[in-house]
Nucleic acid binder design. Structure first.
Length: 595
RNA sequence: GGUCCGGUAGCUCAGUUGGAUAGAGCAGCAGCCUUCUAAGCUGCGGGUCAUAGGUUCGAAUCCUAUCCGGAUCACCA
């Protein structure tokens, strides 16, 4: 709760206590920021109270309003509209708030406590058979931003990535390269490693489809054709060799995976994505079998006659789920059980967050259920942070059908757009080539990141490649621009902030609004941390920037003749820039000082 | 078919534990640069909050049903 809200809440509670001997909880009071059309800073919704006090809403509102003015010197005025008590805090209250905020270098953030156990955030988790696309961008940006938001809430965060570097799909790329690659390398083809490998993944699919079509032409069923496919048999053969540690297969696997890692490294560093620890599925894919054994011994799991192991979740409204194949090998779920335990043993985290698309909701429901059924005490530390798909106008992105928006291409394309727009606006006339490049980079990434992160994570979102991502309006560059404007004022003022202080002045409406918004920053970060939603931070930054731009338009700052007012406005502007900087950094967005 | 998620302006999205006349941006139209950066600001038009019931002082928000869209329910990961 914001400071002024809690002041009003506790005063109201104690008034009701004293006057009526009724004890009410501050939580039951409904307080909200006053709507713009009415005068006031905070509004108490009186209907529930009126009921308790057995008075009409208007009567109760007036009574409480009078009492608040009486009790609290920071409360100036109030007005009652229907059942709403609109309360105005005094100018000096808001000025004190700004003073307090501006003296706190880490305003809004909670300092980490050392002895607390960490929060693990798993995200990205790419496959090494194809380059990253827009869906991965959303995953990476969300994971990265949520990690930062949790850190700002005083949590110790460990960012982990589980690379899916083995399996049938990897073998498809390998086989295709072996058959048709003619020794092509990233160097010889001038292709980024991940794109080169992805090319052979698509290549495999093309040949495989042809083969199936030919087989089906002989009059057999789909299923039968897939069984008879020579290509697929070769892939399985390769996977078998890989599992048997066949030297040549492993060499090829290493070589191609390293190409991909080089490519991923470029993409990650361009996006500003980092990890504290990287797991490889090739190291962990055999784990989890001991947990299955435990479950069998406990009688939670059962074995079918063919030897396969299952769990029956029909009582929970789910289905039966396979945990070990009849040949004793493990499946996706088995591995995830194993890696969860591995991480628990390694970090003893208070929470393990998995940033994974909502298509895997079912998987994580089952994962948690199994763990709690076999009585792992840490089962409830697992949390699936489920986010929606990025859709194209034609529907879902599909790698094999080529309907994907490639991450590298998109970033490059946006960089070029930023460059073009910046030049049209004549912004880079006095910049060196290097400075201009940095600006284009920051602006284009801000546009992309903000575009993704401003949307509520759990919702699906749409990206239309035909329309370029905006640079005006509710966008990252808009917020950057606001920041750059303030930086410009600071440069021109020639003032050291330490040399000026805030005096008591009369505030304009806009000035009040901005201080009020600034004061909400701390609770915004908390809410974002609790709901795992960078969108809340993004929308807050937009509101603040918009409010400031309106203020900027009809208030002079440096030209203001009254020194107290001028100093106040300089500190106010500076504080807006600090909050924007912090807020945007939680989204992984950099702010340029000139643009 | 079962389960889960979603449906708010032409388009993309906000809308806090149920609260006042449902908000932004884009697109469209009309204005504002001799004055701290016009990537900005101001104004106009644009809505049956999918539909129908219910709960109550009060519903985009909660409940029920229906319609539409998506995901998922593999000895794939």
């Amino acid at each position: 709760m914001n400071h002024h809200a809690s002041v009003v809440a506790s005063a109201t509670v104690s008034y009701v206590q004293e006057k009526y001997q009724l004890s009410i909880d501050t939580e039951t009071l409904i307080l909200q920021p006053t709507r713009k059309d009415f005068e006031g800073d905070i509004t108490l919704v009186v209907f529930p109270l009126a009921k308790i006090l057995k008075k009409s809403p208007t009567e109760a509102a007036n009574e409480i309003g009078e009492a608040l003015i009486d009790k609290i010197s920071e409360i100036n005025r109030f007005n009652v509209v229907q059942g709403f008590l609109n309360i105005s805090m005094s100018d000096s209250y808001w000025i004190d708030q700004l003073k307090y905020i501006s003296q706190d270098d880490f305003f809004g953030q909670t300092m980490p406590s050392d002895n607390e156990s960490p929060i693990l955030v798993e995200y990205s988790s790419p496959n090494t058979n194809k380059p990253l696309h827009l869906g991965h961008i959303r995953n990476n940006l969300l994971g990265n931003s949520i990690s930062r938001i949790l850190a700002a809430n005083g949590k110790r965060v460990v960012k982990v990535n589980l690379v899916n570097d083995r399996g049938v799909h990897i073998c498809k790329s390998m086989l295709a390269w072996q058959k048709w690659g003619e020794g092509e390398t990233p160097e010889s083809s001038k292709l980024k490693g991940d794109h080169l490998v992805g090319k052979y993944y698509v290549e495999f699919d093309k040949h495989y489809k042809e083969e199936i079509a030919q087989l089906k032409a002989t009059g057999i069923s789909d299923e039968e054709a897939e069984k008879q496919s020579v290509l697929m048999a070769e892939v399985r053969e390769m996977l078998k060799k890989w599992e048997d540690n066949d030297k040549k297969t492993r060499q090829l696997w290493h070589k191609m995976n390293n190409w991909v890692y080089d490519g991923f490294h470029d993409t990650y560093s361009r996006m500003g994505i980092t990890f504290d620890k990287i797991y490889y599925e090739s190291d962990t894919y055999l784990k989890g079998k001991d947990l299955v054994k435990l479950g069998l011994n406990q009688g939670i799991l059962f074995q079918k006659p063919d030897g396969s192991v299952w769990i029956d979740l029909t009582n929970e409204g789910l289905d039966e789920k396979l945990l070990l194949r009849s040949d004793g090998t493990s499946v996706y779920m088995t591995q995830d059980l194993g890696t969860a335990q591995l991480r628990y043993n390694e970090f003893h985290p208070q929470k393990m967050i998995y940033v994974v698309g909502n298509e895997q909701n079912y998987h994580f429901d089952v994962l948690k259920l199994i763990l709690s059924k076999i009585k792992m005490p840490w089962a409830e530390t697992i949390q699936h942070l489920s986010y929606g798909m990025v859709e194209l106008p034609a529907g879902k992105m599909k790698s094999r059908e080529g309907t994907v928006v490639d991450a590298d291409d998109l970033m490059e394309q946006m960089h070029q757009t930023a460059k073009q727009m910046t030049e049209e606006l004549g912004k880079t006339g006095d910049m060196t080539a290097g400075e201009a490049f940095e600006l284009h980079r920051k602006v284009s990434l801000a546009a992309l990141k903000y575009f993704i992160l401003k949307v509520d994570p759990k919702k699906n979102m749409l990206f239309n490649p035909a329309e370029s991502i905006d640079f005006n309006g509710n966008t990252g560059p808009f917020i950057q621009y606001t920041y750059a404007r303030i930086c410009s004022i600071m440069r021109k003022s020639g003032i050291q902030l330490a040399d000026i202080e805030i005096n008591t002045i009369q505030l304009t409406l806009k000035e009040r609004m901005i201080v009020r918004l600034l004061a909400q920053f701390a609770s915004t970060i908390q809410e974002a941390g609790q709901t795992f939603s960078p969108a809340i931070v993004a929308n807050y930054c937009y509101d603040l920037a918009k409010e400031f731009n309106q203020f900027y338009h009809d208030h002079s700052i440096l030209q203001e003749p009254d020194q107290s007012i001028r100093d106040f406005r300089i500190i106010l502007a500076n504080q807006v820039s600090k909050v924007l900087q912090t807020g945007m950094s939680l989204l992984g967005i950099e702010l340029p000082e000139k643009m």
